[in-house]
Design a protein around this nucleic acid. Structure first.
Length: 567
RNA sequence: UGUCCGAUGGUGUAACUGGCAACACGUCUGACUCUGGAUCAGAAGACUCUAGGUUCGAGCCCUAGUCGGACAACCA
């Protein structure tokens, strides 16, 4: 008998959780955990941001901490309230609550200014009159040291005076900047006297025209974290080289051994077959290659939402992809699996016949209509049932019929029997074809009245089941199928707007006429449906017109469907 | 000829203090017929970047390489 105690189960943690647990163990920051999600309001959020949102808010929830929503609005020329509103909405929709802690870097402009004055007084910042080009060329290159600015050794008094006058608007835009005095020979480019403030006579979406000097990201971010009491400042890998600067600015205003936020970097999300950069997304929207930020082909949160993705599925996805420091490209198949996983349990099923062929049941009474009971969700009995009209003439899917069936084909073929879902077993008696083209015009069948679903003798075994729609009840609709936005291996292979255009596969938009069960009239926006046989769809009434948008994520892994009402 | 970071099946992520490389997606096969792109069952797929070293034992530690990424906006 073993005397070894069974070890407690220890789930594997990603590296940020390990850091947090270590901090908790050592009692750092009085064991507080405080994160923040800090988007710049210069675009709409996409699935990559969702990873960061789930990480930051998720960590706060897991470790009983807090997570702030902070808008990093230090560059007024790129930012807009439209983006603020959309970001707020998307974070909320994803299911996270910042509990009123909605902050703006611009709220700290006065405090940031005071900090800057203090740094000047320490002799560690100076006003530089060089042009942007001159500053840039004097900075050197990664392999060549920089050149000190001739203004580097201005007196503290002169710097104080000049900085105040910068704020007062006495100097032209671009004429002067405030620079940190660090090390022009540093191998880290970001330490070569980085810019702290620039003059910008731009209207800010929150502070209006109050300021004409604006802090840069590097200066504002760490200080904002400090002001908010952030303990773990999580950002993406490209800021790794900024970390020494992040710490340097903090060193200037925080006592040694006092609380200070810690920057931790993780790898941003890349998704196969799509574009994620804000710049490129903006280009697609601005040039009208897509219908807007919420175009269902875009990987934006609102695009995914309109396409039918649920918040749950995106959170599940974020959980599945993990967090690490190596560059990655996640297969969209995992995203698609996530929505399938979720919708599979919850989506209501509906029938659509996308490629219809008429089928007539010869021995079924001409004017008879039967209402049959159809299950709304086979995985969830509480979803209930609905009534489905059945009649002599129906549509079935063209693919569900084969004149010369292969050995593996179990659906309808001449002389064979098949079950009409929720209805009867039918037998194909005859195929009527166009004498010229040979195309199948209609299929003639007979039915077995004993076999209606639910009847005592209905359980006769047949090899296949197909879906159908009563021809006189079905509504004609146009269905547009979209492929993935960029169905190419490397969306970065070309640059410029024209490349986007060519990457938009011309075959990606295909219009199919189909018939849809006439039950959508009562459907509310964003109700989720699964179509019988085809898989899952989501419906969402497009606000701009009377369109129904069907998500075909599950039905066709890489397609969307759009069904327009034909009035 | 700079600094920093990274490297584990096709993809992504694990592997507690050095102890049988695991999980998920994807792929393939089979079963199942009131649809089945669902579900169930199974399979294939990894010299853990390379070379050396330490050790009874290395994905993990040490040394030297290789490859990939980031950094030279008054963007974030």
């Amino acid at each position: 008998m073993s005397t070894v105690e069974s070890e407690p189960y220890k789930p594997s943690l990603h590296f940020i959780q390990s850091i947090i647990e270590e901090d908790l163990r050592t009692g750092k920051n009085e064991k507080r955990i405080h994160t923040r999600f800090p988007p710049e309001p210069n675009g709409y959020l996409h699935i990559g941001h969702a990873k960061s949102i789930c990480l930051n808010f998720g960590l706060a929830i897991q470790y009983n901490g807090m997570c702030n929503l902070r808008f990093d609005d230090t560059n007024p020329v790129k930012e807009d309230v439209e983006y603020v509103d959309s970001i707020r909405e998307d974070v909320h929709w994803l299911g996270f609550d910042w509990e009123g802690r909605e902050y703006y870097a611009s709220d700290y402009f006065e405090q940031l200014y005071v900090f800057a004055v203090d740094i000047i007084k320490q002799g560690k910042a100076y006003v530089c009159d060089l042009s942007a080009e001159q500053v840039s060329s004097d900075r050197g290159t990664p392999t060549r040291p920089g050149n000190p600015s001739p203004y580097r050794n201005r007196s503290i008094e002169e710097n104080l005076d000049l900085f105040m006058r910068m704020r007062n608007g006495e100097f032209a835009e671009g004429s002067r900047v405030l620079r940190a005095k660090i090390d022009m020979d540093s191998p880290n480019m970001h330490m070569r006297d980085p810019i702290m403030y620039r003059i910008l006579f731009a209207h800010h979406h929150r502070t209006g025209d109050k300021w004409c000097i604006y802090p840069t990201y590097d200066y504002a971010h760490g200080q904002s974290d400090f002001i908010e009491g952030i303990t773990h400042s999580i950002c993406t890998l490209e800021f790794e080289v900024h970390r020494p600067l992040y710490d340097w600015f903090l060193d200037q205003i925080v006592e040694p051994n006092f609380y200070r936020p810690r920057q931790i970097e993780f790898a941003r999300l890349n998704l196969s077959y799509t574009v994620m950069s804000k710049r490129k997304l903006l280009e697609l929207v601005k040039n009208n290659y897509v219908s807007g930020w919420d175009d269902p082909r875009l990987p934006t949160i609102c695009g995914l939402r309109r396409r039918g993705y649920t918040a749950e599925s995106i959170r599940y996805f974020a959980d599945k992809i993990g967090v690490a420091k190596r560059d990655n490209t996640i297969d969209v198949a995992l995203l698609e699996h996530s929505i399938r996983e979720d919708l599979n349990k919850r989506a209501l099923r509906r029938i659509a016949v996308l490629n219809p062929v008429k089928l007539i049941i010869d021995n079924y009474p001409e004017n008879k209509i039967e209402m049959l009971e159809a299950v709304n969700n086979p995985e969830d009995p509480s979803a209930g049932t609905r009534q489905l009209p059945f009649s002599r003439e129906i549509f079935i899917e063209r693919d569900d019929f084969m004149e010369d069936p292969s050995a593996k084909f179990f659906r309808l073929s001449p002389g064979n029997e098949v079950r009409l879902k929720y209805a009867y077993i039918i037998r194909c008696e005859k195929v009527i074809k166009d004498p010229v083209t040979g195309a199948i015009l209609e299929i003639r069948c007979t039915y077995d009245p004993e076999t209606r679903s639910g009847l005592p003798n209905s359980n006769r075994k047949v090899k296949g089941t197909i879906h159908w729609l009563s021809a006189s009840h079905a509504r004609l609709a146009e269905i547009r199928l979209f492929d993935r936005l960029f169905n190419v291996e490397d969306p970065d292979s070309g640059e410029g707007a024209n490349d986007y255009k060519t990457h938009l596969n011309p075959d990606s938009l295909q219009i199919i006429k189909g018939f849809v069960e006439d039950t959508f009239k009562g459907a509310k926006a964003l109700d989720k449906f699964q179509f019988e046989r085809l898989g899952y769809f989501c419906i969402d009434y497009d606000s701009s017109d009377k369109q129904l948008v069907f998500n075909r994520t599950i039905a066709l892994k890489d397609s969307w469907a759009k069904i327009e009402k034909k009035q």
